[in-house]
């Protein structure tokens, strides 16, 4: 069995294999396939709770991946807002940089902006990635919900965010009028 703790090298080597076998375009095709088929958890969360779904999804993933990060959500009651991740040390790229016995895929970090923003755009989320420091396993991404989603989605996200503020373990935050 290939352990889930060995997935990142298997992923990186899969990109390398695809590139060597069929070219970089085929790597991009694969990322589109993942974006269309593997993001169910994120897609369902955003479909139900709007931008709060981003908070929920990355909270789960980044904690299980033992990332070194800050994530923040600014949410208005109408469902508009901003979600950001400041990845101080990416556990995936960080691991790849630590391996010396094989070469990580040269374009590994491009898979994140290829996967998430195209899918989230379908739900009204505009994404901006900061990739300037990926060689140090650091990056950032920010998503904006510029226009209010359907009222029931805004209400579900607002309710979940209030619960998170009240009971979320290790969560800080505030509720203000503006």
């Amino acid at each position: 069995m290939i352990s889930c703790t060995e997935f990142i090298p298997s992923y990186s080597l899969f990109f390398s294999w695809l590139d060597e076998t069929a070219g970089h375009d085929k790597v991009l095709e694969y990322w589109k396939y993942i974006s269309d088929n593997y993001l169910d958890m994120l897609e369902n969360a955003v479909r139900e709770k709007g931008i709060f779904g981003c908070w929920e999804y990355w909270k789960h993933s980044l904690n299980e991946e033992a990332a070194d990060f800050v994530q923040e959500l600014y949410l208005n009651e109408d469902g508009t807002g901003k979600f950001s991740i400041d990845m101080r040390y990416c556990p995936s790229k960080g691991r790849l940089l630590e391996y010396s016995h094989f070469t990580p895929y040269y374009d590994y970090c491009s898979h994140c902006p290829a996967l998430y923003p195209p899918m989230l755009e379908r739900y009204g989320l505009r994404g901006i990635a900061d990739m300037d420091r990926v060689d140090e396993a650091a990056c950032g991404e920010t998503y904006y919900m510029d226009n209010p989603p359907a009222p029931e989605i805004a209400a579900a996200g607002w309710k979940a965010a209030l619960e998170e503020l009240a009971t979320g373990e290790g969560i800080t935050g505030s509720l203000t009028e503006k």
Binding site: S10, E64, A67, D68, N76, Y89, G168, T172
Partner: peptide, 28 residues
């Protein structure tokens, strides 16, 4: 406006993201 913030260090968690098994399955 509601503001939430989560700040985690790598040492706060154990590295075990089992959803990666599904990602590998998808690759196969």
């Amino acid at each position: 406006m509601l503001h939430l913030r989560m700040d985690r260090k790598a040492s706060d968690n154990v590295y075990l993201h089992k959803d990666f098994h599904n990602a590998f399955n998808l690759a196969i």
